[in-house]
Amino acid sequence: MLEIKNLSIAIDGKEILHNINLRIENGKVVILFGPNGSGKTSLLMAIIGLGNYKITSGKIIFKDRDITNLPTHERIKLGIGVMFQRPPTIKGVNIRDIAKFLGNYNEEEFRSLAKLLKVEHLLERSINMGFSGGEIKRTELLQLLLQKPDLSLIDEPESGVDVENINLVGEAIKKLLEKTYTAYSNNLPMKDHHKKRKSSGLIITHTGLILEHIPADEGLVLVEGKIVCKGNPYEIFDTVKNKGFNECLKCAIMK
């Protein structure tokens, strides 16, 4: 699905991501751990080509196509979706205005997703204006579920979300990544579903809480712009929880 090769990026002449290598197979979910300021969000933004940075080396390959220099909206059209951690408020622009650009869905689907995500009361409002933390995540997920991307880039889905909302956010991400039983197509046997499933995800988490909701396949640790560890996401989370990110540095599988 996605392959990043030796990617380095710089902002104002200062390199902030160093020689990143990353691979996400079809249907897999990769968790990206890392302390604040380690470059997680920058990596996500680099994948879709946003932000004020320069690629100094490396390539981004999506579905066997080099997208390193494609404009953002074209990358999105190829099947990438992003859930922003802190999306901006846009006055006078509501979800329906944006949804018109999101591709194939019908009104019925729109309504049922809006109901599922409990955002019906937000559809006509200026996007993110006065939304609570949970409302922001849920409206982000509504857009992604309408867009149906093959690769979802999800930035800190649990931040600013209260306990009540986290379950709903978790369920919606599972649906997006085709991890819920009801999302399985045509009641296929599990083995066939796994083969057929294309939806892949790269999820940034600072707290790791989302792991309680999403079955993840792999974990990466990003510290100071470098990937320092790769492995079982639950094991990594457990280590970080108990001993902090320094333990990952000591381990340094990637050295």
Binding site: L50, I76, V93, D97, I98, F101, L102
Partner: peptide, 21 residues
């Protein structure tokens, strides 16, 4: 940029923002 990350090209994104404004 947020709108571009929804697959909207820059022209349409700016038009949408002006209209919303």
């Amino acid at each position: 940029e947020y709108l571009m990350a929804r697959g909207i090209n820059e022209t349409d994104a700016v038009g949408l923002i002006i209209r919303g404004f």
